[in-house]
Amino acid sequence: MDGFTLVLWAARLLFLALIYLFLARVIRALLRDLRAATREPVDRHGRLIVLESPGGEPMVGRSFGLDVITPLGRDVNNAIVIDDAFASADHAVLTYRGQSWYVEDLGSTNGSYVNGLRVDGVAPFGFGDELQIGEVRMRLERANR
């Protein structure tokens, strides 16, 4: 086999090899992505940490595990009872949909605030965001961390 044929061979195989190298890199990235996905909690709902609560109900530092629909308000039937003068009876509801949390203000008198912005109807509520109802401030966190 002469030199030219060798180069021809090499170029041909290099092309195929590069496609496979590409595939290998892609598959590595895919696997890493999948592994990261499986590490994510199966129960992804999250929890609400009380940061500030002048009224003492809820207690500062308390952590509430969240259901996909978690109502908040002064009424005792709420999952999270907020005993605050500025809170309405059915104040707001947290809903988990798809992969995100949302705050829906149920027409409260004094409104709900996410990161200081008043919620007009429904607002997305990300992990690390702060929700303020009356004078109670709470932060959304992932369930297991």
Binding site: I69, T95, G98, Y102, E104, L106, G107, G121, V122, A123
Partner: peptide
């Protein structure tokens, strides 16, 4: 953008 939020409020009530 998050998808439009579900309108559970009224139904919830």
């Amino acid at each position: 953008e998050p998808p439009p939020a579900p309108r559970v409020g009224s139904r919830w009530r």
